[in-house]
Design a protein around this nucleic acid. Sequence first.
DNA 1: CCGGATCCCGGCCGATACTG
DNA 2: CAGTATCGGCCGGGATCCGG
Lengths: 120, 120
Amino acid sequence: MGKAYNVMAATCPSRTVLHRIGARWTVFVVNALEGGPMRFTELKAHIQGITPKVLTETLRALEHDGLIQRTSYDESPPRVEYELTELGRSLLVPLSAVRAWAEEHVPDIQAAHAAHVEKP
Amino acid sequence: MGKAYNVMAATCPSRTVLHRIGARWTVFVVNALEGGPMRFTELKAHIQGITPKVLTETLRALEHDGLIQRTSYDESPPRVEYELTELGRSLLVPLSAVRAWAEEHVPDIQAAHAAHVEKP
DNA sequence: CCGGATCCCGGCCGATACTG
DNA sequence: CAGTATCGGCCGGGATCCGG
């Protein structure tokens, strides 16, 4: 069977999907939830440098897209847990590969930058 | 051997790398160049909706990172070709997987959106 | 103390028009 | 054909405040 969607087409809904995936912190949050459910503060501590506002926005967007599930326990102190849905775990596969690529090729990118300084 | 870099650390240079990958149009340009060299106008036509300014910015950034190579032929009319470097082709592997995921899971995302409209 | 919401700013993104 | 120039808007992001 052929491809039903094509991200290169301007009106294709897959663009919206790719737009979300490409959002600044999506790859970080999805990767962070790889090991299982995490609380808001845990996520904030694990993903160093993320601000609560941005973390909230990212979590809401991912929840809206059905990639993560938010569970609120009515306790004191309050407890809220986030975890990947099955759809989210399927996205984790390519996103962890992207993460791995980034961590692996840092020297190559830095070498390319250095080369451009040499010959501008 | 252990991992040298970790994207979760605030000061890790892999963050910069991931930042580039996460830029709006990077995934589109890299995927577009999968089949071989392309000219500026070809790219613009293939990646529907991209503006010349943004395409130029994206191409410059990717060239600076050593992911693509720009070749200018001194002809009339002028001809400029862009192609993936070996490093760029290695990035194509995870990025084409991300693209495939996006194209494949459009119905799931749309179903999640619909579910949130039903029960807000 | 946890899990946010609000205010405000800067930079990236994008549309349109123009040029070697 | 292969880009610049210019302007505007929106979104990402930091600092601060709030409810339970």
